[in-house]
Design a protein around this nucleic acid. Structure first.
Length: 151
DNA sequence: GCCAACGTTGGC
DNA sequence: GCCAACGTTGGC
């Protein structure tokens, strides 16, 4: 059982979108960074939990919690010529972009902002605060518990 | 395999 | 909209 942080731009896909999706669930498509892909493909397991983080918006921060319900999914957008995420170098026989399905667990009582996270020494080692650009990142059990107590 | 050029992310 | 950080591409 591991913990993760998944980034999404709320203007495109917010935590509320996930809650309102069929079965409050979605395939986490569009990741096109190998480090993030490797985590999704090799490290993330069914039952793991993840913070849903809002990036590139007015108040960047953690908006909710979701649970991984399926792994090993070929990112459908990578095979769809109509998609902005289409990758001609990927194919069903030799897929390049493997991802997961997540389901909404619950929204946090309030958005815990990036600004606030930065103020806690206990979180100084968070990947979010050091390698900010990675869109799928591990969260330690200690960080996970600490953040939930801030809620 | 190096590295310059270029593209993207994402906070501010 | 700016720009720092960093990932990717492609010539050599």
């Amino acid at each position: 059982m591991n913990y993760w942080l998944l980034k999404s731009e709320p203007d495109t896909y917010s935590y509320t979108h996930l809650e309102q999706a069929p079965k409050s669930s979605t395939v986490w498509d569009g990741v096109r960074n190998y480090q993030a892909r490797n985590l999704l493909r090799d490290e993330v397991s069914v039952g793991d939990q993840a913070f849903f983080y809002h990036s590139s918006c007015k108040e960047p921060g953690i908006a909710g919690i979701c649970t991984v319900t399926e792994t090993g999914i070929i990112d459908p957008s990578s095979l769809d010529p109509q998609s902005a995420y289409f990758d001609p170098k990927s194919s069903p026989d030799n897929p390049r972009w493997i991802t997961i399905r997540v389901a909404a667990d619950r929204a946090l009582k309030r958005v815990i902002t990036l600004k606030e996270l930065r103020q806690h020494d206990a979180l100084a080692e968070m990947v979010l605060l050091n390698r900010g650009r990675l869109s799928v990142q591990p969260v330690s059990e200690e960080e996970w518990g600490y953040i939930l107590k801030l809620e």
